[in-house]
Design a protein around this nucleic acid. Sequence first.
DNA 1: ACCCAATAGAGAGGCTACCTCACCATGCGG
DNA 2: CCGCATGGTGAGGTAGCCTCTCTATTGGGT
Lengths: 159, 159
Amino acid sequence: MTSDATPDLGNLFHAAFRGLRRGWMEQLSPWGLTPHQWRALQAAGHHDTGLHDAGPHDAGNPGGGLRLKELAERLRIAPRSATEVVDQLEAKGLVVRRPDPADRRATHVFLTPAGRRLHAEVSAARREQSERYFAALSPADRTELARLLGLLQATGTPE
Amino acid sequence: MTSDATPDLGNLFHAAFRGLRRGWMEQLSPWGLTPHQWRALQAAGHHDTGLHDAGPHDAGNPGGGLRLKELAERLRIAPRSATEVVDQLEAKGLVVRRPDPADRRATHVFLTPAGRRLHAEVSAARREQSERYFAALSPADRTELARLLGLLQATGTPE
DNA sequence: ACCCAATAGAGAGGCTACCTCACCATGCGG
DNA sequence: CCGCATGGTGAGGTAGCCTCTCTATTGGGT
C-alpha cells in the first residue's frame, strides 16, 4: 500500500471492527434476527429491563413502552421503517404493540416474555463473543482501549 | 443495564466506530460514490496506484487490471454483484473493462485517468477526515491505539 | 487431438431494507 | 368547533445484494 509509516488509524480501525462485526452478525443468525431487528429489540429492551415500573418521570410510559417514533430515532431510520421492523418482531412474537393510554395516536412497543428471554440470551452470547474477541488484549490493554475509545466517542459523536 | 459494571468494549467499539464511519460516508456522497463503489475503486486502484501509476509499460499484464472475480472476493460479495459495481463505475467513467489477453474468459478492470484522480482525491480527503477524527488523541495515544487495533486485527481477522 | 468438467462473466428475476408521499385518527390552541 | 400539527401506516419506488442459468472459454485426462 501507500505507507506503513502512516499506519492510517482509520483503516486499522475499520479492519479491526470488521472482525468484531462479522462474529457479531454470525452470532445473530442462529436466532433468526437481522442486525436491525436486534437493535430494535435492544432499544425496546432498554426501556423495559430494569426500568420497569419506574414511572413518574416517564410520563405515561408504562414500563416498557417505546414509541415507534422514538424507536425510529434510535435506529436512525425513517418512522415508516420502524413500523416494518416492529412488524417483523411482532410476527416473531418478540414484541407487542399497545396503544399509549395517554396519547391515543401513539403506539408503544413492549417486549413479550419470549422477547425478553431472547434479549437476555443474545445479550449474553454477544458479550461472550465480544469477550472472546478482546481476549487478545491483556486486562491493562483493555482498560487502555476503553479509555481511548471513550475519548473518540466523546468527540466523534456530537449527539 | 450492566453497561457501567462491564465497560463492554464491544459497545464502545461500535459507538466509536460509528462516528468515524458516519463522517466517512458523508465524505463520499459529494463525489457521488457509495461506500461499495469506493471500495471497488480502491481495490482496483490498489493494483494500480504506486505500482504502475505513470506508465502503461506493460499493457499486457494489467498493472491496474483486477479480474471481476478478484474484485468480488475483495469486496466479499457474489461475483454477479461485482459486475454491477463495475457497471456503475464504468458508467461514471472511472474504470474501464478490458479483456485479459491471456485468458479470454476473464475481464480486467482498469482505472481511467479520471478514476485515478478521483481515487487520489478521495484518499486524501478520507485521510484528512480520519486525521480530524483521531485528533482527540495525543500522538502517544494514537500509537497506543494502533498497537491495540493491530493486536485485535491479527487475531480477529483469520484471513 | 478430442471431449468434458470447471471457470469467468453477465442476463433474468427475486428479496430485503430502506426511502417518500398520501392518508387517517387523534391531540390541542384558538 | 376548526384548523393545524403529530403518530402510525398503506402504497409504491429504489438500491444492493442474492441465486439460477446461459455463453464463451480453458485445460486436463484418455
